[in-house]
Amino acid sequence: MGDMQASATSAATAAGWVGALSTAAAYLLVARRVIEPDAQVFRVINMLGGALLAVSAAASGAWPSVTSNFVRVLIGVQALCRGAAQRTNGCWPCGGMSFAAPRSRTGVEPGTRSLRRAVPTAVRPAARAQPPNTASTSLS
């Protein structure tokens, strides 16, 4: 029985290390702008890493860590469903629920790096009108 418990502990520890390294790698990829924070690959890596960390924490009895990583997984599932709903007008894993993405409050659409590119031309402020040149008119 002791050998089985030792192997389960070793598996949980390995899962924790894989989870920690994967979430750190996902964050590094976003920080280096290799992937966008709203990319599906980032969400999946973060979600799987959180699940593996939760398994490791549960084996150790660290319930606050289990809870926070479970919340991370739930957030990832919700984000994946919202992305799928935007692409397919509904998401099968979520029971066909529709997750409408809110419009950005800053005017920058997800995935863009510049406010100038996100704002339509019609909304951009017009160039200042130049005053008429009165010096060249003659009074004669």
Rank of each mutant, 00 (worst) to 15 (best):
T67E: 06
P125W: 10
A51K: 01
Q130Y: 14
G96Y: 03
N89S: 09
M4P: 00
P64Q: 04
A62I: 08
Q130M: 13
F42V: 04
R33K: 15
C91P: 02
A8R: 06
P120H: 05
P131V: 08
L53I: 08
A122V: 11
R116E: 07
V66L: 00
R82S: 05
G61H: 08
V18H: 06
N89A: 09
G50Y: 05
R103M: 03
R117N: 07
A39D: 13
T134I: 11
S140N: 10
T67D: 05
R105E: 07
T67K: 10
R103P: 03
A85N: 09
G76L: 00
A20N: 08
T112G: 04
T9P: 05
R43F: 09
R113C: 05
P102Y: 06
Q130C: 13
A12T: 02
Q5K: 13
G49W: 00
G19D: 05
P93H: 05
Q130E: 15
A101W: 15
V108T: 08
R128D: 13
R113I: 08
L28E: 02
V44P: 05
R72T: 11
A126T: 12
L80A: 01
A129K: 15
A135V: 15
A59C: 04
E36Q: 14
A14M: 03
S65Y: 14
V30T: 01
G16W: 06
N69V: 04
V123F: 15
L53S: 00
M47T: 15
L29M: 12
T137L: 14
S98I: 10
S65N: 12
D38Q: 10
I35K: 08
V34H: 11
P132A: 14
T137Y: 14
A58P: 01
A126W: 12
A51L: 10
G83K: 12
A57N: 05
T88C: 13
A58R: 09
V18M: 07
T9S: 12
V55D: 04
T121N: 11
A84N: 08
V119P: 00
W92I: 07
L139T: 11
R113K: 14
Q40R: 15
L80G: 03
S56Y: 02
P102R: 10
A129D: 10
V77N: 05
V66Y: 06
A85C: 10
V108A: 08
G107R: 03
G50I: 04
G83W: 14
C94P: 01
F70R: 09
A15Y: 06
R82L: 12
A62Q: 12
R116K: 13
R116S: 03
W17Q: 12
R72N: 10
Q86V: 11
I45P: 00
A20S: 10
G19F: 11
F99Y: 13
D38M: 10
G96K: 02
S114N: 07
R105N: 07
L21W: 12
G107M: 01
D3Y: 13
